[in-house]
């Protein structure tokens, strides 16, 4: 057992799956969810706990899109680039977010507040283009709506207002 809180998450994730080697991906999912990435330290610790080479953890962490080895921002934005959303100009939404938050391509902003990634289909094709901020789905987004404060449309669990306020406030603070 380690007293470091990050490693405690790891311990409990390993325990949850009975320390089984074949549960590697499930355990990595837990870590990714709790810590936002599979860091080098986590990977090395995990390799010890499961008695597997660290190269196997690294390989999986870089192969699967669900994991990232780079830390994510406090707020993680996912932009759907499935076919349906792509046809509705989701690429432009992605570019616009990058420009507003000063992030080149996928990755995190310098201060670690935000990170953005393109994801495959989020399964809301009929409500597209969609994006999600911290797992809250925003439907029918457009590049133009990103910086502006639209009307108080309430959409799903998340409002455009909330989504864009977060971003706008961030820009003003800068």
């Amino acid at each position: 057992m380690d007293n470091n809180p990050a490693m405690k998450t790891l311990d409990s994730a390993v325990e949850k799956y009975g320390g089984k080697k074949e549960a590697l991906l499930s355990i990595m999912h837990e870590i990714q969810k709790a810590q936002g990435s599979i860091s080098e330290d986590s990977a090395r610790y995990l390799s010890q706990k499961l008695d597997i080479p660290v190269s196997q953890v690294f390989s999986a962490a870089t192969f699967y899109r669900a994991f990232s080895t780079e830390p994510r921002g406090k707020h993680h934005i996912k932009v759907c680039t499935g076919t349906s959303c792509y046809l509705r100009a989701s690429e432009k939404i992605f570019e616009r977010i990058g420009r507003e938050l000063n992030i080149a391509g996928e990755g995190a902003s310098e201060d670690g507040e935000f990170s953005v990634e393109k994801v495959r289909c989020m399964g809301c094709c009929n409500a597209g283009p969609v994006m999600a901020i911290d797992e809250q789905i925003c439907e029918d987004v457009s590049a133009g709506k990103i910086p502006d404060l639209p009307k108080q449309e309430i959409i799903g669990e998340m409002t455009h207002r909330k989504a864009t306020t977060v971003i706008k406030k961030y820009r003003e603070d800068k």
């Binding site: 080098e40 080479p53 190269s55 953890v57 690294f58 390989s59 870089t62 192969f63």
Partner: peptide, 26 residues
């Protein structure tokens, strides 16, 4: 039997690497 190196990433970015592109302890 060391498994000191592995493939990293996939598709067009696939490469062979030591873990985290750093010294391999294995």
């Amino acid at each position: 039997g060391a498994q000191a190196i592995s493939f990293a990433s996939r598709g067009g970015n696939k490469k062979v690497a030591s873990p985290f592109f750093k010294r391999s302890g294995d």
